[in-house]
Design a protein around this nucleic acid. Structure first.
Lengths: 240, 240
DNA sequence: GACGTTTAAGTCAATGTGACCTTTAGGGGT
DNA sequence: ACCCCTAAAGGTCACATTGACTTAAACGTC
C-alpha cells in the first residue's frame, strides 16, 4: 500500500481473472465443468471456465457473470464460495495474471452449450482428472485438486452437501453425495441417525417420494444450520 | 482468459497487493500486528501491514517479503497461509486494487520497529478491534474478522495451535492458546487427555520445565500430524 | 400372497466426553 | 524438617456417540 513502491520498477500492474471449479454429482460420479480452449495459449487443452474481472464488478460478481457467460448457469441457485488466489509469476505465458478461484456446487446442472467464445464445454469425471494423465491448462490441475480437497473437508462440518441436491431430497440422495465425494461406502442406518440428530441440518417436509422399487422415502429440505456440530467425520468406510 | 476480453474497455489492469493478519498470543490476549498509515489514503488510520506484489515473486513470497520489510519478522519460523482475495471495486479510492490476504501465526514475535515507511507498528489486542469502535483502513476490519474466524475453526481440526508456541511447550501453554483464541475455559485434565490421545499431535521430549510455582510440567514438541482426528471441538466451555 | 427392494427403526458393545476428584512434585515460609 | 500453596498429572464415573449389525415396515411386482 505504499505509494512510493507503486512507482518502483519492481512493481507492475496485473490482469485479474476468476476461474471456476463447478461441480455436480451425476449418478455415482463427481463431475467438473471443463472448457476446451479456443485460443492460445494452451489452445485445445481443457481448462476451468473463467475470464477477466471487469472494472465495476466485485470478484464474486465476476464469478457469477462468467458462470452465466461460459456455462449458461444461473448462479442464484447454487453454492458459490471463494477458494483462493493463484498468482505464480509463470502461470500464464502472456504475463502476470492473478486468478481468483471460485468453487461452485449445484445439482443436475444443464449440460452447457459451449461458451460465447466458440469453445466446447463439457462435464468431466473428477476421478479421471485427479490421478489421470490429462493435464489442464495453466495451473488449473492444482486448482482442481485444491477444490476437491476443500469440498471433501467442508462436507464434514458444514451442510454444503445439500447444495448438490434439489429443493427437497431423500436421505439416500444426500448420502450418495457423501459417498461419491468421499469415495467410500457409508452405512445408511448410521448416516440417517447422524443427520437427523444434528440439529438444523435437514428439515422434514412431511412428503414422500416413491422410488422405482422399495419403500417410499421421506423428503427433507435444508435446515437452518450451516455449521454442523458435531461434524460428520469421514471415518473409515470401506470403498464404495 | 479470453484475449478478446482483454482489449475490451470493460477490463482494466489492477494493482495486486498482499496484506497480512499477523497474530500472536501474549499473556491472555490474542494480538494482531497493525501499522499506522503514513500516507494517503487513510493517513493516520491503523491498517494491516502489506504492500504491492513485485514482478518476479509468487504471492507467498510477496507475503514473506512484506512480513520482513514491514514487521522485521523472519517468516521461516511461523505459520503462513493464504486467507483469500479481497477485490471490491471501491475498496481502495486510488483505483482497482485486489489484495491477497495472508494469515501468519507465531509466538513471542518481536515488537516491530516501524516500517521503512515511517509508520508506527504495534501489537493490538484483537478483542478490542472486533467489537470496538476502531475501524481499520480499507476493508481491513473485514479481513481481520475473517482471519479470526479462520483461526478459530482451524484450531479444531488442525495442529495449528502449536504455531503459537515455541519449539517445545507445556500442555498448559498449548491449552492457553486455545482458551485465548476461543475465549473460554477448557478443563485442563480433559484437554490433556484429548491432546495426548490424538496420535501425532504432540511428542514428549522427556524434559521438564519449572513453573514459578507448582509441579514441573513435561515439555512436548509438535508431532507429525497436521490434521487432528477426531477434532477438538469448541464445545460449551464457560467463558474464561 | 410370497418375493425383492429400499426405507426406517432398533440393538449392543466399544469408545469418547464432560464434570468432577485425588495424587504428585515442586517452591516458600516458619 | 514440616506444613502450605500451587500447578501438573492421573483417575473415576455417568453419559453420549459411534460402528457394526439386525429387524421391521412399505412399496411394486410376479
Amino acid at each position: 500500500m505504499d505509494d512510493w513502491l507503486k512507482d518502483s520498477t519492481e512493481v507492475e500492474a496485473s490482469w485479474v481473472t476468476v476461474d471456476l471449479a463447478i461441480f455436480t454429482v451425476r449418478g455415482d460420479q463427481l463431475m467438473v465443468l471443463l472448457i476446451e480452449r479456443g485460443v492460445e495459449p494452451f489452445l485445445g487443452r481443457p481448462a476451468l471456465p473463467g475470464g477477466y474481472v471487469q472494472k465495476a464488478e466485485t470478484l464474486r460478481e465476476g464469478a457469477l457473470r462468467e458462470l452465466w457467460e461460459e456455462a449458461g448457469i444461473d448462479g442464484s441457485r447454487l453454492h458459490l464460495e471463494q477458494l483462493g488466489a493463484y498468482g505464480d509469476p509463470g502461470r500464464d505465458p502472456r504475463g502476470r495474471v492473478v486468478t481468483i478461484a471460485y468453487l461452485a456446487l449445484g445439482r443436475e446442472l444443464p449440460t452447457p452449450v459451449g461458451g460465447t467464445d466458440a469453445k466446447r464445454a463439457y462435464w468431466a469425471p473428477v476421478s479421471q482428472l485427479i490421478n489421470g494423465t490429462q493435464e489442464l491448462a495453466f495451473d488449473h490441475s492444482a486448482i482442481l485438486a485444491d477444490a476437491l480437497e476443500e469440498i471433501r473437508g467442508k462436507l464434514e462440518y458444514t451442510a454444503v452437501a445439500t447444495a448438490f441436491c434439489g429443493e427437497t431430497f431423500t436421505l439416500s440422495e444426500l448420502r450418495t453425495v457423501y459417498e461419491v465425494i468421499w469415495g467410500h461406502y457409508l452405512d445408511p442406518s448410521n448416516f440417517r441417525r447422524k443427520v437427523l440428530n444434528t440439529e438444523g441440518f435437514v428439515q422434514p417436509t412431511g412428503e414422500r417420494r416413491l422410488p422405482p422399487t422399495g419403500r417410499p422415502a421421506s423428503l427433507y429440505r435444508r435446515g437452518a444450520a450451516w455449521l454442523l456440530s458435531p461434524p460428520l467425520l469421514r471415518g473409515t468406510g470401506y470403498p464404495a
